[in-house]
Design a protein around this nucleic acid. Structure first.
Lengths: 143, 143
DNA sequence: GTTCCTGCAAAAGCTTTGCAGAAGA
DNA sequence: TCTTCTGCAAAGCTTTTGCAGGAAC
């Protein structure tokens, strides 16, 4: 299933989660801005078109979407949570220089050790930290 | 190199990090209690023997140890940081029922995709969430 | 008219900072 | 003596909660 706004709206409908104007805009933002934004980013970007939007609503909506399984909370850094509309298994790489978070494909299921066989695994996260190719290149170039 | 207090003290010596009484006790605690404790756990346990210990010192020391590379900060949950004296690559499984965090061996290096070849990876974290064998068993048993 | 949602303000919780006094070399 | 460390208090941030007003059906 592709991660389109239509599909996500349909999924919410099936789960009886209503979509107010604010909620729809936040969902749209997540679909169109696959940058694993923070609450602050979502809030300040959307506020430009919705001056009355409050941060509380952003928090409430993200919590609702996470509870409904449509959004994943990324804890790759200590201070702030980040949000990902793509809930399928994949890895995240955070550049310590520019702050960008990149997705990368990784299938760790074959590596899960036997000792976890008797556990029930609900979510799997792979987080890498370092410096991205772009920053390494501009560092070399710029001095 | 084994994770003994002696080896860790030696490593700090080489890095010119001095070990006060408080710092030594916190380091000892981490070596002897491989439970990925929170600041609160470390503080309240150590306070029993060191009534004047302050939480600030626990924070300061953990930051120092992390900066020195002797401790890893685990962000497997959103609210509180946890600390691991074992900085070698391994996975963490957090049980949502009892809150325990288990270590498990996993070597993801062979799975790192080509697209990250030009990045510099500094740290790798694998976090699983779910229910541990112990909790699943007692649930079945207890009803 | 009833229910649910929004958004302000305040509170809560973790972590950091400022600083004076204490400890140690 | 001089430097470094501790620990109290206060501040800083992110996130949650209480609640009155408003929107939607």
């Amino acid at each position: 299933m592709k991660l389109t706004l239509e599909n996500l709206k349909q999924e919410l409908k099936e789960k009886n989660v209503s979509l107010s104007h604010q909620r729809l805009k936040i969902l749209e933002y997540l679909v169109e801005n696959r940058i694993h934004p923070t609450v602050e980013q979502i809030f300040s970007d959307l506020q430009k078109d919705m001056p009355t939007l409050s941060k509380t609503t952003v928090y409430n909506t993200l919590r609702l979407l996470a509870k409904s399984g449509l959004v994943k909370v990324i804890t790759i850094e200590e201070k702030e949570a980040r949000f990902d509309i793509d809930t399928r298994d994949h890895g995240h790489f955070k550049c310590e220089s520019c702050g960008r978070i990149y997705d990368f494909p990784i299938d760790i299921d074959p590596l899960i050790p036997e000792e976890l066989d008797k556990c029930q695994i609900i979510s799997k996260d792979v987080y890498f930290n370092g410096f991205c190719a772009r920053c390494l290149a501009s560092e070399k170039e710029g001095g």
